[in-house]
């Protein structure tokens, strides 16, 4: 179903990438490696340098210094491009063309393209495959853009905000396909503001801020490093709460929440001071909370 990556060479190997636009240092000594078969989430706030990093890796921009290679080939070289699939963040396709024509066009650039029927099925293009794209909604265009990334049966896929504008069905369809692609040995670099999507698809994340990598690791390792859990409980509204609780907890959706390094100690204290608390829960932090926590610690 999917092309397999050669296991000996890194899918992406970038070292010391620097890029400046006028007064703005978009990337500072940015390094990244991606093993074949690995799915990596590149995260960061708007303007952190994610798009610049992607452009350098895709060969759409030239770094001021540093080097980037794709399966050992210089980024942007013909050898690199033939192994890569890209979905554009903003897909302004020619309005007069149909998705079928666009997929055929892209397929002509690759040695062993994917069967079109597989892509039509995987990205739910059946209804729109022969319609001109002029009147497409954002979600429909996005589905075509995603299919285009995979049409060349690539060893590595760059996905820049892949599901922005996509409905829930489309998001689920894409996430299943991307995960299956990585499980089958495909390499994937994803940027997204949807944390759940990164958790769903990626094995590892790299966080970038002001052009620098500030956090890197496998998702499980990152959770362990944060070493925190969420403690929450419900309480009758007329209960007087102790001051320590009001300071340390937040109230949201009918429950009191706190993030704790030592959740056992906190629970013991809650039971001692608030015997009437109900539905006490200890849950692991989600990725967004974990990263926020680690960032706080890094800043401190």
């Amino acid at each position: 179903m999917f092309a397999r990556s050669p296991s000996s060479t890194l899918a992406i190997e970038a070292e010391g990438l620097n890029k400046r636009f006028g007064n703005v240092q978009a990337l500072q000594g940015f390094s990244l490696s991606l093993r074949p078969g690995e799915a990596l989430g590149l995260i960061g706030t708007n303007g952190a340098g994610k798009s610049t990093a992607l452009k350098l890796l895709q060969g759409l921009r030239v770094p001021d210094s540093g080097r980037a290679a794709i399966f050992g080939q210089p980024a942007g070289s013909s050898g690199a491009k033939s192994r890569v699939g890209i979905t554009p963040q903003n897909a302004d396709f020619p309005e007069q063309m149909t998705p079928r024509e666009m997929l055929s066009y892209a397929a002509a650039h690759f040695q062993t393209p994917k069967p079109m029927t597989e892509l039509i099925e995987a990205f739910g293009l059946n209804r729109i495959i022969d319609r001109r794209m002029g009147g497409f909604s954002g979600g429909e265009s996005r589905r075509v853009a995603l299919a285009l990334a995979f049409v060349g049966n690539p060893l590595l896929v760059f996905l820049d905000e892949p599901t922005s504008g996509l409905d829930t069905d489309g998001q689920e369809m894409f996430q299943a396909y991307a995960r299956a692609y990585a499980d089958a040995g495909g390499s994937l670099l994803l940027t997204s503001h949807h944390w759940d999507e990164i958790e769903q698809i990626c094995d590892r994340i790299v966080m970038i801020d002001q052009g620098k990598q500030i956090l890197e690791g496998a998702l499980d390792d990152i959770r362990r490093r944060a070493g925190r859990s969420r403690v929450s409980f419900a309480m009758a509204e007329d209960t007087d709460l102790p001051a320590w609780l009001i300071e340390g907890f937040t109230f949201d959706s009918g429950r009191w929440h706190a993030i704790a390094a030592d959740s056992d100690a906190l629970v013991r204290r809650l039971i001692r001071d608030l015997p009437r608390c109900r539905d006490l829960q200890i849950t692991p932090l989600d990725l967004k909370e974990t990263v926020a926590q680690l960032r706080k610690e890094l800043a401190a």
């Binding site: 013909s78 033939s82 890209i86 554009p88 963040q89 396709f93």
Partner: peptide, 14 residues
């Protein structure tokens, strides 16, 4: 100025 033309640049073939 089109993102499509930029995407075309990412395809092999020159």
């Amino acid at each position: 100025q089109s993102a499509f033309a930029t995407w075309q640049r990412s395809l092999p073939g020159g």
